[in-house]
Structure formats: C-alpha cells, structure tokens
Design a protein around this nucleic acid. Sequence first.
DNA 1: AATTATTTTGCAACTGTGTTGCTTTTTTAT
DNA 2: ATAAAAAAGCAACACAGTTGCAAAATAATT
Lengths: 146, 146
Amino acid sequence: MPKQSANEIAVRIESLLKRNRLSVTDSRRKILQLFLEHTGAMAHGDIEKGAGEKFDRVTVYRTLQTFVDKGIIHIIPTADNSIRYALCKDDCGEGHHHDHHIHFVCNHCNKTYCLDDVVTPDIKLPRGYSAGHVEVVVEGICKNCQ
Amino acid sequence: MPKQSANEIAVRIESLLKRNRLSVTDSRRKILQLFLEHTGAMAHGDIEKGAGEKFDRVTVYRTLQTFVDKGIIHIIPTADNSIRYALCKDDCGEGHHHDHHIHFVCNHCNKTYCLDDVVTPDIKLPRGYSAGHVEVVVEGICKNCQ
DNA sequence: AATTATTTTGCAACTGTGTTGCTTTTTTAT
DNA sequence: ATAAAAAAGCAACACAGTTGCAAAATAATT
C-alpha cells in the first residue's frame, strides 16, 4: 500500500466523520489520524499518549467507544487482558462489524496486527453447541522481527 | 464423566497439592475444590465468592497465580476483557502448559467452557510470520441453553 | 450572521481490579 | 518440640474504566 499523503489522510478523516454523522472535533480528528498513520493495533494508553495534544482520559474512552459503535474501529482481545483497537475495513457500519480476520500478536515487538487476508477457520463444535463469532489470536514472531 | 464423591475430590486435592510441592492450606483446598466441583471456567469474582469462607482478595490472587505457575489451572482470555480460569488436564506441569483446545463462551448463560476435544486449528499465516500459541474463542449458544 | 439546540468536553468523584511490602500466623522440616 | 520456610491477612497503592454534571464547542435554525 502506497503511503498516503497528509492531505489524503485529512480528507479521509473528514469523510469518515461526516459519513457517520459525528460532530467534527479535535479529539476525533487526532485519534482517527493516529489510526490511519499507524500500522497495527493500539492500546488505550498508546492512543492517549500518541494523540499529541493531551485529551482527557474520559474523552479518549468515549471517543473510542463511539468509533466502535459506529464500526470505524474494532476491539482485539489479547491474552494479557489488555484491549487493543484497530481500524475496521470499510464495509463495517453501525451495528454490524464483520471482521472475520485473525489477529496476530508478536512476542518480540509486542505489536498486534490484523491479518486481513487470513480468515477465521470454521470450527467444528460438539453436538449441541452453535457458533456465533469466532475470535482467533495467534502469538508468534512477526515479519519485521524474524 | 461420573460425578465424583466428596471423598474422591478430597483425595484428588491432596494429591494435586503434594505433587506440586505446595503447602496444604485452607484456601488452596477450598479453591481447588471449587474448580473440581464446578463445570466451566470461573472468573476471579466467582472464585472469591464461591469459596464459602471469606479469604482475602490477595490470597485468592496469589493462590490462582500459584496454580497457573504450577500448571494446575490455565487462563482463558475473553472478549470482554475479564480473565477466566479453568482446570488444566493432567499433563500440564510447571513451566509448560499444553492446552491446545478451544474455548467457548455462551452468549446466553455467559459461562465459559473448555472444549477439550476440539483442538485448535492450524492457521496458515502470510509469509514471514511464524506461529507460536494459537488461542481460539468461539461465542455462541451452549448445549444447555439451546 | 446571530441565536438556539445539540453534542462533546473536561473535571471530580467513584468503583473495581490487581499489586506490593510488611507483619503475623500457619505449615513443613528437623 | 523447635527452627525454618511458606502463606495469609492487612494497609496502602497504582491503574483502568465509569458516571454525573457544568462549561465549552459544534451543528442547525432563523
């Protein structure tokens, strides 16, 4: 993927907010920018620190929650019980996430990646169980850390 | 699995503790008993409340940590960021967990189950990534809630 | 462009979870 | 029975996340 220019990112940010009928505010712009410029998932702390300006913790929580609700970002559970957030692909919308890809956590650099091209496998469950969402998290070494 | 008698459970508790060179204490006995009598995984809160006698929060944390270290129980990550604990099968020991089964969270009764007979699938990763542990959590409806 | 209505922010306070240091008590080894 | 080792309980703390509310910013209306 070619690196996006600052301008392209700015346009995309406005478009994302407008499309979701969200007020355009500083914190939302900055946090979206972070996601668009950053490869890999981010923890709440990364976001709070990374946003340049200092926003209130509560604002960051609420902004992230709003983005999750609108289908702009999704939550990645990790083994160490720390939530991470990552951008959704464009076909997620309000009330329906479809992120059927797996997640990868690197044991070396500790980054979390969405492997968008690796779909979650079908799991054959015992009689009586019916499957809804399947979440797969693979731990290992990422391509940058080999 | 036939229901175990109170006596069988008591014997198993002593054996588990002895085998792992752990002092035999009240809290360890009671917490182990909980795991042996309870189907499905438990959150920290369940354990603290369920243990009958009131043990200090810290004691419960330390006991659980000890059991994890010794390979007696293992941790199940869940999407809502609340850790659950479940008994390991007998071949786990200090320093090496091998729980290659998947976990199931029921959206109705909210219980978490270890599906010991469903092994984690092989995941084909993109070039450059190497896989270590694979964690699969399936959400859906369990056999008791159908 | 000014005013009103709506939304979002930041603050303070609070809850819940997990941790650490230290002393007392219990368990194990001698 | 005694000494050594391990665990329990307590207080204090750190951190993550939530809620209510007043002030500020944004969007809609005239």
